[in-house]
Design a protein around this nucleic acid. Structure first.
Length: 486
RNA sequence: CGGGGCGUAGCGCAGUUUGGCAGCGCACUUGGUUUGGGACCAAGGGGUCGCCGGUUCAAAUCCGGCCGCCCCGACCA
């Protein structure tokens, strides 16, 4: 391999530069790269093939992990009788403002309104109550991939849509300890998946009472930092305790002949992760997709000229047949577009690696390659391709993660006073580490004034440091992460 | 739900102030010449001007009502 420098030419401006207007950049990008399009109903989007392919790759990689930890997939109904949703007090209070209701079937008014699921605890628990009698029926480890609907006031493609796709795991256990273990195990699965497949580094920890899931005993989350300095909750795992078991009557006869309420968990990640990938890795030229989830990992652009057309196309086709079994490799041999147009197009669409095959490359017995993550150009001799292509993709994947982690480190601040907290959130954004006493009142006032929320209380590393609450000054406060969030 | 912006060809827009043939760029179709960082020439196709009503000889344009989308807030994966 011969390095040929870095491509730093300015690209054609179809997308608002990220530095100029992050929000507009994001919207331009998701539309221009054909990830999605707006649908006729507010907050609803069509996920186009290129966007859906990313989701399919995410599904495949996460589903494998979910199954490897002993879970099985199932499917539960879209409609939930209103009375079921209302059983758990906190749950209904949290979700009632944003549920869509079906009131009619055909022309007839329904006897009971049906909620279009905003999440499936209620319907699943009503089924679990029928399926669980004995300790021998436990644990129940079920996941489902589906759509849910939440009537949001403010929507944004992928980050917050009225309908979105996700997976939700719902498990039932015989003890508190086992449920807690499951909750943490799945949070760990999410962290592993998001960091290794999406190349997005995350902080994991416990949510505060105020931020926890409606109906949960405890919520844990993984939190990522976007390139504009705002945080995004990338996944949640809830220990539901016995809250739902008690109202849905999920009881089992234990080994000690006692009738007991079961312990439950639920956990989910959604198509929001596509938004995270865009906002963490994207740049002024467009998307930068991690190879693990990129619909196209390698795009071959044949440089077609009048004289050498067939030779060039033959070589390009050979590349597809040589590597088509091991890589997601495609060729853009459209003759109505110039090579330059294609370079920009596939860079905007975030394809990790581009191979150019032209008359010059044929003469030299190799291909030109350009990395999307660095813009680096190189010449690769034909014989080196089988080893270099996979290793370049690994390298790109790791580099994207490293860049994102470095960005997060640079944008994580440690503050000791409330004034510093306010100033940092205002000026620098990013994650801000500060001590917090655990009081909802402090949390609330900080949020009202700074718009920053406690993203999570991180898991203690070694001897946990404590200090004075940055707001009220109380001793033995814990270190938490603050940030403005999506 | 509050504040702001916008609805005219697939996309981006002009035209609305001062009523008078519905336009421009890109995209699309056909033919030709091209092709190593968004090629060029020529000829074409495409419209319920968001919807309903009113004023008028005449409405994209004026008036009234409604609907939708986007952005910023408050609420949320």
């Amino acid at each position: 391999m011969q390095k040929l420098g870095v491509n730093d030419k300015e690209f054609v401006k179809e997308v608002t530069p990220r530095s100029e207007d992050f929000s507009q950049w994001y919207l331009d990008l998701v539309l221009k790269t054909e990830l999605m399009d707006y649908a006729p109903v507010k907050g609803c989007m069509a996920i186009r093939p290129y966007g859906y392919a990313i989701w399919e790759n995410m599904q495949r990689l996460l589903d494998k992990r979910i199954k490897a930890t002993g879970h099985k997939n199932a499917y539960f109904p879209l409609f939930i009788p209103e009375s079921l949703l209302q059983k758990e007090a906190e749950h209904v209070e949290g979700f009632a403002p944003e549920v869509a209701m079906v009131t009619h079937g055909g022309n007839e008014k329904l006897a009971e309104r049906l909620v279009v699921r905003p999440t499936s605890e209620a319907i699943i628990c009503s089924m679990y109550a029928k399926w669980i009698q004995s300790w021998r029926d436990l644990p129940v480890l079920i996941n489902q991939w589906c759509n849910v609907v939440r009537w949001e006031k403010n929507t944004r493609p992928f980050l917050r849509t009225s309908e979105f796709l996700w997976q939700e795991g719902h498990t039932v256990h015989s003890t508190d300890e086992e449920a807690e273990e499951e909750t943490l195990k799945m949070l760990g699965v999410y962290k592993d998946f998001v960091e290794n497949e999406l190349a997005v580094p995350v902080i994991s920890g416990l949510k505060t009472e105020k931020e926890k899931f409606a109906g949960a005993l405890r919520t844990y989350s993984i939190e990522a930092l976007m390139a504009d300095g705002k945080a995004l909750q990338a996944g949640t795992s809830h220990n539901l305790g016995q809250h739902f078991a008690k109202v849905f009557d999920i009881q089992f006869l234990d080994k000690d002949k006692q009738l007991k309420f079961a312990w439950q968990t639920s956990w989910g990640v959604s198509t929001r992760l596509i938004g995270a990938v865009i906002m963490v890795h994207g740049d002024d030229r467009g998307l930068r997709l991690p190879p693990q989830i990129a619909p196209i990992q390698v795009m071959v652009v044949p440089i077609i000229t009048k004289k050498k057309k067939e030779e060039v196309l033959d070589r390009a086709r050979n590349l597809l047949s040589d590597f088509g079994d091991t890589l997601r490799i495609e060729m853009d041999d459209r003759e109505e577009y110039s090579p330059g147009w294609k370079f920009n197009e596939w860079e905007m669409k975030g394809v990790p690696l581009r191979l150019e095959v032209g008359p010059r490359d044929l003469e030299q017995g190799g291909v030109s390659a350009v990395r999307r993550d660095t813009g680096e150009k190189m010449f690769i001799a034909d014989g080196e391709l089988p080893l270099l292509l996979p290793s370049l993709l690994v390298d790109i994947q790791e580099n994207l993660f490293r860049q994102a982690r470095d960005f997060r480190e640079k944008n994580t601040s440690r503050v000791d006073s409330y004034d510093q907290l306010k100033e940092t959130i205002q000026e620098k954004r990013g994650f801000v580490r500060a001590f917090w006493c655990g009081e909802g009142r402090c949390e609330e006032e900080i949020k009202n004034e700074t718009k920053a929320t406690i993203r999570c209380i991180p898991f203690p590393e070694g001897d946990q440091e404590t200090g004075l609450c940055c707001f009220c000054g109380k001793q033995h406060s814990k270190m938490v992460y603050f940030a403005r969030a999506y």
